[in-house]
């Protein structure tokens, strides 16, 4: 055993490299530049509380909020948009995900094309799709349902094709070696192992769609956001606040159900 009375030397601290120093400087400069560009104003954080605009949020006119045409009909439309787009998007996502996974893709060309197209679709934010489709096929819930379908398809194939990538390849190999053709081999060898994840992801997409469909109406694509947009133009923030309380109460309940279902699945 060594002598323990001598304390060992503290190791020398590594010097920061010139490159890391340079990167840190660049990021700092970017931050300052960006802060100027967005007119960063720290005083907002304490001045906001004395803003007279708050009086416009209160009191909430509950008798206006609790009516069928103001809140509940648009809310039902929102739910219907979310259900339709989740269903169509996730159904379309199933074959595309299998084409997009290196494990189950029929050939390299389909793999490459589907992956590139889906990446490009996902690069467009959901409300951009909504605005584009509102312009193309008219204002209303129909355009909203289309845009969320496209967006949930793009997100779903990303999530699910990665699950398929990680699936156990041996059942697929067994099916192939018994002479099965491509589709039956994938159906019997891969689908059963990834199906619980598929259902869980579908529920997750449903949660995303519920939240997204609340704001779709801000660009004219139907649902409860349409009423929020109208009241915003009249500066009726008290009505908006009342609607938001109801909307998020209902969204929260739906999410809790969906989360508990997902926990049981995976």
């Amino acid at each position: 055993m060594n002598d323990h009375t001598n304390t060992s030397e503290r190791p020398v601290k590594p010097k920061p490299r010139a490159r890391s120093f340079f990167i840190a400087l660049m990021l700092l400069a970017l931050t300052f530049w960006a802060a100027i560009k967005v007119s960063f104003d720290i005083s907002t954080f304490w001045e906001v509380w004395t803003n007279p605009i708050w009086s416009m949020f209160w009191p909430i006119p509950w008798d206006w909020v609790f009516t069928k045409e103001n809140t509940f009909d648009p809310l039902i439309e929102t739910l219907q948009i979310a259900i339709t787009s989740t269903l169509v998007g996730c159904l379309l996502a199933l074959p595309i995900s299998f084409a997009m996974s290196s494990l189950t893709t029929p050939n390299k060309v389909i793999y490459f094309i589907s992956k590139t197209v889906m990446n490009l679709v996902r690069a467009v934010p959901d409300l951009f799709w909504a605005k584009l489709l509102v312009t193309a096929i008219g204002i209303g819930a129909f355009a909203g349902a289309w845009s969320l379908t496209i967006f949930s398809l793009a997100v779903m194939v990303k999530l699910f094709s990665e699950t398929v990538d990680a699936a156990d390849p041996r059942p697929l190999e067994a099916a192939r070696s018994s002479g099965a053709r491509h589709l039956p081999a994938v159906k019997a060898g891969v689908l059963p192992t990834v199906f619980p994840s598929y259902v869980a992801y579908s529920l997750y997409i449903f949660e995303l769609n519920i939240r997204a469909s609340v704001v779709l109406g801000l660009v004219g694509a139907g649902g409860v956001g349409r009423v929020i947009e109208t009241q915003r133009q009249f500066f009726r923030f008290d009505r908006i606040l009342g609607m938001l309380v109801i909307i998020f109460g209902i969204v929260w309940v739906i999410e809790q159900i969906s989360v508990s279902l997902r926990k049981r699945l995976v």
């Binding site: 907002t44 704001v215 929020i228 998020f248 969204v251 929260w252």
Partner: peptide, 20 residues
């Protein structure tokens, strides 16, 4: 639970239109 867009709807009357 509250999307960015809804937060922005509430914040715009307080800070005014624009990037902030």
């Amino acid at each position: 639970a509250v999307p960015e867009l809804i937060l922005a709807v509430i914040l715009i009357p307080i800070t005014g239109l624009g990037a902030w």
